[in-house]
Design a protein around this nucleic acid. Sequence first.
RNA 1: GCGGACGUGGUGGAACCGGUAGACACACAGGACUUAAAAUCCUGAGACGGCGACGUCGUGAGGGUUCGAGUCCCUCCGUCCGCACCA
Length: 875
Amino acid sequence: MATERYDAPAREKHWQQVWNEKGTFRTKDIRTKDKSGKPKRYQLEMFPYPSGRVHMGHVRNYTLGDVMARYMRAKGFNVLHPMGWDAFGLPAENAAIERKVHPRKWTYENIDTMRSQLKAMGLSIDWEREFATCDPAYYVHQQRLFLDFLKKKVDGEPLAYRKTAKVNWDPVENTVLANEQVIDGRGWRSGAVVEQRDLTQWFFRITAYAEDLLQALDKLQPTWPDFVCTQQRNWIGKSTGANMRFALEGRKLPKKLQALEVFTTRHDTIFGASFMAISAEHPLAAHLAQKNEELAAFIVECRKIGTTEEALAKAEKKGWDTGIVAVHPFRPDVKLPVYVANFIVMGYGTGAIFGCPAHDQRDLDFARKYGRPVVPVVLPPGADAATFNIGSEAYVGEGTLINSEFLDGLMIEAAKDKMASLLEDRGIGERKVNYRMRDWLLSRQRYWGCPIPVIHCGTDGIVPVPVEDLPVKLPDDVTFDRPGNPLDYHPAWKHVTCPKCGGAAVRETDTMDTFVDSSWYQFRFTAPNAPTPTDKKALKYWAPVDQYIGGKEHAVLHLLYARFFTRGMKATKHVTFDEPFTSMFTQGIVVHETYRSENGDWLTPAEITIEGDGINRKATSITTGRPVEIGAIEKMSKSRKNVVDPDDIIASYGADTARLFIVSDSPPDRDIIWTDGGVAGASRQVQRIWRIIDQVVERNGKRNSKSPSFGPEALALRRAAHKTLNGVGQNIEALRYNVAVAQIYELTHALSGAMDKSGEGLDWAIREAGEFLVQAIGPMMPHLAEECWARLGYNTLLAEQPWPAVEPGLLVDDTVTIAVQVNGKRRDEMTVARSAGSGEIETAALRLEAVVRALEGRPVKKVIVVPQRIVNVVV
RNA sequence: GCGGACGUGGUGGAACCGGUAGACACACAGGACUUAAAAUCCUGAGACGGCGACGUCGUGAGGGUUCGAGUCCCUCCGUCCGCACCA
């Protein structure tokens, strides 16, 4: 019996079945059934897109979350740990086009596959709360939220609204493309040159919360990764400055265009202004272009470089002199020529600037090219006003104002303040805060998404679909045999009667961006069957999510959208708080070596064998026997073929091995290199623990009896066991799983070391340490833990056991080993009683032979004693 | 260009508040068991010098603060990520 190998794949199926039958991980409905009075813990990982099969990134994500969920359950929390599917999206439509399979069928087949794969991982998930966002039972509530956002006004404007926006239009596919579908200015599928078209689109007014989303980051910072907070701050892009208006001269202009408004953060430098520049899309440019073909051509040219970002950043600054001039507001005799310039973006500020070349690099480049004057108005500290000159680099640092009349001598901030007040007094400008973030464009001209529940009526305009008519369901009978949005050319679906006047009307055929689906799913899990989007009681108990875990790639969009949506749902009375995720953790990716055959084809790890090690490692193709080049370690991807299928690992080694590999060695937030060697190592550990527990059982210690007195061996083992359990718990809570695993290994060493000893109370201690070991591995290797628990003679489930209480007295040793330094250099160490005082330690240290030798007879100047830590003898 | 993160043995990594750098693991070497191998167990190991006790050096580089720095401060180098003409 003792030498039997643990058959992980078989036993794992068994325990999964037991958990399933007993409903071990089913979370009780808080509204009716749970009366436990336990504190709650909501553990959530980003739900997957059902792309087809589970990949290692999923395995990592859900393992990390499951360890936390299982640990918290053992710690006495009432845990909510749900799973669902981010099921709308473009790949389903691509599959429909390429393989003639309906998006719904494709999606649900993938969900079935992936659900069974996730179940094989042994995740402690309440599968009864599962939902897919493509289910009308889910999106009906999303449509309701949309209608509430449509109605709700924040600062006088509705949260959902329509306006025209530029979209990427593929003239061959006859459809709108997402930015990532535009490659080098061409449609990814058709290869046609993409046009910019104006379409009326739906938006969420996320900018209404720009300031709040920014401010609240300070409160999230301690429990969110720094980089996520900084990226969100940059994305929101707050800048404080002023709007100012310039009178225009030189041509007859319509009233609206007679003044040019600019946004600036450097209103202090107005006396250094030497030109004005407006965007090619500015109304003034459009107006002038009507009667000027040359300008019209220039505008078209500007628009072209707008498609590739790389070119955009490097493109040479170009301008077109309109012949119009702006009057300097403080020096009426100074006229500033107005250019249409390719580096001014319409979407930011007012789409127009005044150029101050001395203190802005872009303006300087432009001024040098078009021969505009460069007058410094800020003098760096210590520089001489008479000789200070701008060369090829603009001065953007601190300093005092010069050449600026009434601003002279002021520091930049003071000058800005004075200038802003002056603008306001004169009525030609005002203080202004600008944000880079734009409103969230949620319209998608796609079939496989949540329909936007409005109706367009010739007489009543935009009419919301009445709540009782929801959901607006997607029609099933659609075809993908021609380009464009199937909803648009469906023969019947969009034709309806107007809910207001009863006349003929048409449905909105746009569907929602799938980021909408994932912006509130975390709340739906708290009451997945509620008749309203959220259930007050359930939400009050469970929300917000205590620990959210997911990929770094969602640092901005998904997390920012979810934060906005929570605010919107608060404004519409669906939730009572602002932030959806109390604590956020971003995991690293799974990477693997790449392999290429002689003719450059990528090969999968399964198609090759490797021999040797270090620089002698050689890879060979299994099918051809030819040498294979071992390439860089990269993110697992289908295109590089460096993928390992989780199913293969689970089938041959078991889920616990995969889970252990995921959590050992690499810190969860860093990238993890998947290697065969590492998997084999994890598998060995699984077997080692199984054997140790077997030995523990053979040893036949009893723990149910009263604790005996303990000899030194037993005491040492008990200390190790209690320290381990304590450390493992702390490290799991801090998501430092790799350190927790290392501590578990230390306990296995202590246990196997004690196994061939004997001593007073040792059998008892071995039994205790064995049980602690099983408890400690529970969150990470739950199947093995159940198997060991049963082997220890229990007929209960380990998953239902509380985390054992540690005895505080066993966490500290009676004696401590402290280092002894001479002049900061370690010379020896000594073991003293923990309670030893400074004087005692000092005398003992000075007596040490190594210390005496190092002193070389020199007089001791000072002795620094830090009890329990270190002694430093200074000479 | 701007912003962020990181840099520790052959490798992944550990080191709470500044207090014995290298826990734990992988790979490696030696040994035990075996006819042999696999599996398993034990031992060794940062580098350099020395038979040895031991000594010197050592956390990307340089400087600083301190009795004491992987940890704090400054400068530089490198890697990765995000944003990218944002006025």
